[in-house]
Each structure stands twice: as C-alpha cells, then as structure tokens.
C-alpha cells in the first residue's frame, strides 16, 4: 500500500470544505481522511461543518402549493 502523506491541521482546514463538497482529488482526499482519523479537533470540525451543511439543505427545501403547480402546468400548456 502506498504511504499516505501526513498533513497538519492548517493544511487539513484549507481543504476541509472542498472535501465535504466532494471536490477533492483522490490523493488529497486520502490525506485529509487520514488526518481526520488521527486529529480529534479536525474530526469534530468536519462533523460540525457536515451537520451545518445538512441543516442548510433541509432549511432550503420547499414544496410548491397545488395552485402554483396548476399555474405552471397551464403555462406549459400554452407553449
């Protein structure tokens, strides 16, 4: 198995949001996952940011009313 580069907290924090956004390449992702396994503070921080992201997504969820859906359908019918 290839050895994973050990990174410090500063480096981990720099990439944390991209990691949670699933935007890190495989090498960087492994480095970050490794750091989170061994560093309690960064682990807690990752959990916190992840939870906040989930809550934001839930807060943004909306459901249109039946009246509005009908309005859009009749708009589409006129196209």
């Amino acid at each position: 198995m290839k050895k994973i580069k050990t990174i410090g907290c500063e480096e981990a924090l720099k990439h944390l949001l991209a990691y949670l956004d699933q935007e890190l390449g495989p090498a960087k992702r492994r480095e970050l996952e490794h750091h989170i396994e061994i560093c309690r503070t960064c682990f807690s921080r990752a959990e916190f940011e992840k939870l906040l992201k989930t809550q934001l997504r839930e807060a943004g969820r909306e459901t249109v009313g039946a009246a509005f859906e009908e309005k859009i359908k009749s708009l589409l019918g006129r196209f």
Binding site: G60, R61, E62, T63, V64, F68, E69, I72, K73, L76
Partner: peptide, 11 residues
C-alpha cells in the same frame, strides 16, 4: 420542469 419544480421554487 414539474419534476424540478420544488427545487426551482426552493432556490
């Protein structure tokens, strides 16, 4: 459009 309506409206 109908499938994405809730998402579009949410944004």
């Amino acid at each position: 459009v109908i499938g994405l309506l809730d998402q579009l409206f949410g944004a």
